[in-house]
Amino acid sequence: MTSDQKVLVIAEHFQGEIISSTSKAINCASQISSQVDLLVLSNDPNLSDHASRYDGINEVLVINDDLFENSIASIMAPVIAEIASSYDYVLAPSTTFGKDLTPRVSAVLDVSQITDIMEVIDSRTFKRPVYAGNAIETIEINQGQKVVATVRPASFKDVGDSNNASVKILDLPSVDIPNHTRFKGIQSEVKERPDLQVASVVISGGRGVGSAENFEILYQLADKLGASVGASRAAVDAGYVPNDMQVGQTGKIIAPDLYFAFGISGAIQHIAGIKDAGTIVAVNKDPDAPIFEIADIGIVADLFEFIPDFLSKLD
């Protein structure tokens, strides 16, 4: 570890809370250096309290301004690039937030960027997935160059929250801030269950579930296990559930401790999203379903008979 290197992590927040992917980016940052600061750009002064508890954080930098209410990349990037001038690394979670934002920061700083760090080999050498995780690249970034990167949340554990880092309120730097982008709203499902990307147990349904109504049985099981509910792309395309529940290459890449696949055949694009799960349990009527090739536990059964039986055994 090179301790004189300074790392700036960009916090992601939504509706008054810092999102867990931030914690995973801090974990990655701590593997690069012990000098890690967290930058919170928001219009919510309450966020800094949560931010200062993350283990591994040296200092929390805060700019409170209504400009940052909705995380617009073209507004945030020039501000972050200005603050980054005294840092060697800028890291953000590899979520839609981080992917939208960091390339603009890289362009202001005129440097190359690394997407999806999944492993830190040393302070200049990293592993990252390419071809939807079907190959892993080991890359080395030139000495002396500022590193801007996103961190793949599924590859890092959360850090603890027993810290009490100092909080420094910064003034908005004097940079040009564009007004060409306007937030109009967000349609978000009301979340009654844990977020897919942080849940330790995830229950997913595929086309085999058959209808939106039939997903109810998966929700029942999820509530019993404190799990989140996901779906294959086939189930999303069939209109059973909204797209933000999609797990896979074109949806969310997740790594729960326990993953249940009900009525999911196991297309390559779905497998790409669950490769890092701890234990994969697959239940499918079709004994030849490809999902059984990668499952840790396979059961050939009709999910509508299996789940009620499973539920009763959990009582």
Partner: peptide, 17 residues
């Protein structure tokens, strides 16, 4: 400014029961 040192296959999952 970035050198690719190596491209490898992801670790395979153990076969299950």
């Amino acid at each position: 400014s970035i050198k690719v040192l190596n491209v490898s296959a992801p670790p395979p999952r153990q076969s299950g029961v």
